[in-house]
Write a protein that binds this DNA or RNA. Structure first.
Lengths: 343, 343
DNA sequence: TTGAAAGCGCTAACAC
DNA sequence: GTGTTAGCGCTTTCAA
């Protein structure tokens, strides 16, 4: 089938070894044979057998990404962007990217990580959406398997990561609403267990406290990070008396869902009620009204985590580097004008 | 490092061959040795070396997906959903999924396909967004490399595909608007070269013609499939005199962008102007006003294309199967009421 | 029922 | 400079 070193060796009349060395660019091959070998290689259309190289080198030159997905209509734009980021960086360094999809915390996911951590599947892993007491991270740390996470944890585990400072981000957003005159600010939190959700929630509480504002327990609801969740949960917030004048959602998808429901109830977002999100997904600027949110450069984060992983794999970097980025506040119409200026 | 067959063989005191056969479940191993071997394998924590198996079997048990991406803020929700679909199906059949990202029609993409078509990278490929005169398909057909496409082509190439009948879908949508009383219907087409865009455009023209409606050239604009594109292009449509009473966008992302721009200009979607999209991305139901569109089951399409590919790889299916699905019309508020019922 | 031997395609230590 | 040899870990004749 495919052309092998042997074919070239036969054709040129040298040994397989020589061919291998010539093609690999070793200096101990005479210029003339090297040329003849190269010529033969191009003529025959030789390309190295990746699998054989891998077996020999005991490395796969492949990165793994086990993507947490949820059921059939799963379609979080985060992942397209993130994959584009890691994929591009990986390709730039001649790494392949293996993607595997599993529901978070499922048995399938656990197996996938166990399999990966055994080695031989990929040389390193990119892990996203770190969780409290994250078994994935625990496993990888324990087995000493190379990985970089997008996200931190609170526990004793130490590992390299890139993260967004959700606490600082949320502080900007909450402060923005407070500065606009809001005092009753509802919050739609992510499901328990996600680290970034925890930071976002914490940022909310802290900023409220810092401004001497009390938070009533019923102001804080938990959503499932999807547009459905946002729509579903916000309606309870709307029935409160007094009704919050602003609602912050811990991601844009939920904010968009919430906006939809709010407007369905005849209220105007950015007028009757202020709304904020987190992520700045590309659509955030194009919904009606455009969404005030915190911008995270997902593609860049993907690239950087991947670059970090590749550095680690090549022993080029102090282990356990930590990068913490600060999101930037993007104010759009959904936050509305100063509260007392409303008509 | 890792436990190999040899380790087990040593431990049990048999040959590597026997261990291999015992573990592979061949019948010609005595029950007792088989048990001893199995016990030793579990005890030592044996797992086969995938690379070695691949080299030996001359197949990778891996599927490739070369994802067409565009720059840094690329984030089309289509891809998360599609990858979730193919990934799940692949995993169910114990295939791995290799993902590579490249700009469409770029040199990098061409290289990726050439590399894949040489073999050894993946056993088969999933191709999406077929193009007119698609070099990728031409290459794969020529090299006889197994693949399944999501999308068809017009030319002589015959290959297995799953596709959505965009023409039929668009007909439903256009007819829907016509039935509502619209006569001046603008259309935002995808960039030249994409097959599905062609079908969608054709569906529009044909349905207009079928209803004896003429289409003025200035009603048809070309957008780039993103929310930006939709927003950008729709404004020219709005300046026409008479202004179209309805605008159809060839995907939801553009429709959402268009809706944004329309409302920015003080017009109300679903009232002053009707709007339709295509795809039914999960957010379509949650924008304001909710978008009338055509539903495509992307996840399912991913699963089915992947299943088809796996069948082909295992020689289980008549080559070049064609599946054509019909999208379903989802009417939401953006199409508005009957035209003459408007206030 | 078991084992020896060959080989998938490549690389590298070591001779010549 | 070049070839011999060995081996990465596995599977599969073939012979015993």
């Amino acid at each position: 089938m495919a052309v092998t070193l042997k074919d070239i060796a036969n054709k040129v009349g040298v040994s397989v070894t020589t061919v291998s060395r010539a093609l690999a660019g070793y200096s101990d091959v005479s210029p003339t044979t090297r040329e003849r070998i190269k010529a033969a290689a191009t003529e025959l259309g030789y390309f190295p057998n990746i699998t054989a190289q891998r077996l020999r080198k005991q490395r796969t030159d492949t990165l793994g990404f086990i993507m947490p997905t949820f059921g059939a209509r799963f379609s979080d734009p985060f992942f397209s962007e993130f994959i584009a980021g890691i994929g591009t960086e990986a390709a730039d360094h001649e790494y392949d990217l293996l993607v595997s999809t599993h529901a978070p915390d499922s048995e399938g996911e656990a197996n996938a990580y166990r399999r990966a951590a055994r080695g031989g599947w990929a040389d390193g892993l990119i892990v996203v959406r770190t969780r409290e007491d994250d078994l994935r991270l625990r496993l990888l740390c324990e087995k000493n398997f190379p990985f970089v996470a997008f996200g931190r944890t609170d526990d004793e585990l130490d590992f390299p990561y890139v993260d967004e400072d959700s606490e600082a981000g949320m502080e900007m957003l909450v402060q923005h609403f407070i500065d606009l005159g809001h005092r009753h600010i509802g919050f739609i939190a992510p499901p328990q267990g996600l680290m970034f959700g925890r930071y976002r929630l914490r940022g909310y509480y802290q900023t409220m406290a810092k401004n001497n504002l009390t938070v009533l327990p019923e102001w804080v609801m938990e959503g499932d990070m999807t547009q459905h969740g946002g729509a579903h949960v916000v309606k309870d917030l709307l029935t409160l008396d007094p009704r919050p004048t602003a609602v912050i959602c811990s991601n844009d998808l939920m904010a968009i869902g919430a906006a939809n429901r709010i407007q369905q109830q005849g209220l105007m977002v950015g007028k009757d009620i202020a709304l904020g999100g987190f992520d700045d997904i590309p659509l955030a600027a194009f919904v009606t009204p455009p969404l005030t949110t915190l911008h995270q450069p997902i593609y860049e984060i993907g690239r950087r985590s991947c670059a970090m992983l590749i550095n680690i794999l090549n022993g080029r970097v102090p282990q356990n580097e930590h990068i913490l980025l600060t999101p930037s506040l993007v104010v759009r119409e959904s936050s509305g004008p100063m509260l007392y200026e409303r008509r």
